[in-house]
């Protein structure tokens, strides 16, 4: 499987990273080199093997249902690049 320029653009759009035409070409060859390398996994027989997704092998611990957090709007907003009163602000979205 080899990436073409259109796929690189589609992936960049999905990842919300703006790329210009020269970057597309560079990325295309770099990404294809990586994909070429990982291609070797094709030779491994994984019939009947469960995927391993986590680093830890144990059951999920559950917490009690208490309110222990929040009410820190000022701290939550302190790093915001733009805010309007106690809201985060972004360019207007037209729906």
């Amino acid at each position: 499987m080899s990436l073409d320029a259109a796929t690189v653009r589609r992936i960049a759009r999905l990842a919300r990273i703006r790329v210009d035409d020269t970057e597309v070409e560079t990325l295309k060859s770099e990404l294809n080199a990586i994909l070429g390398y990982v291609e070797q996994l094709g030779e491994v027989n994984v019939d009947g093997i469960e995927p391993l997704s986590g680093g830890a092998q144990m059951a999920l611990r559950q917490r009690e249902d208490y309110v222990t957090d929040g009410e820190i709007a000022e701290k939550v907003l302190a790093n915001a690049p733009d805010r309007e009163q106690n809201f985060f602000a972004v360019p207007k979205v037209v729906e």
């Binding site: 499987m1 990436l3 796929t7 690189v8 992936i11 960049a12 999905l14 990842a15 990273i17 990325l27 770099e30 990404l31 990586i34 994909l35 990982v38 996994l41 094709g42 491994v44 994984v46 093997i49 469960e50 995927p51 391993l52 997704s53």
Partner: peptide, 28 residues
């Protein structure tokens, strides 16, 4: 680069071939 590769291997149509396969080999 890594975000792009990561986005690609999880994207529709490639998940099984890349990500799922990798998870199985990880188990091995």
């Amino acid at each position: 680069r890594r975000i792009m590769i990561g986005t690609y291997v999880l994207s529709h149509g490639y998940y099984d071939a890349y990500y799922l396969k990798a998870q199985k080999v990880r188990n091995l």
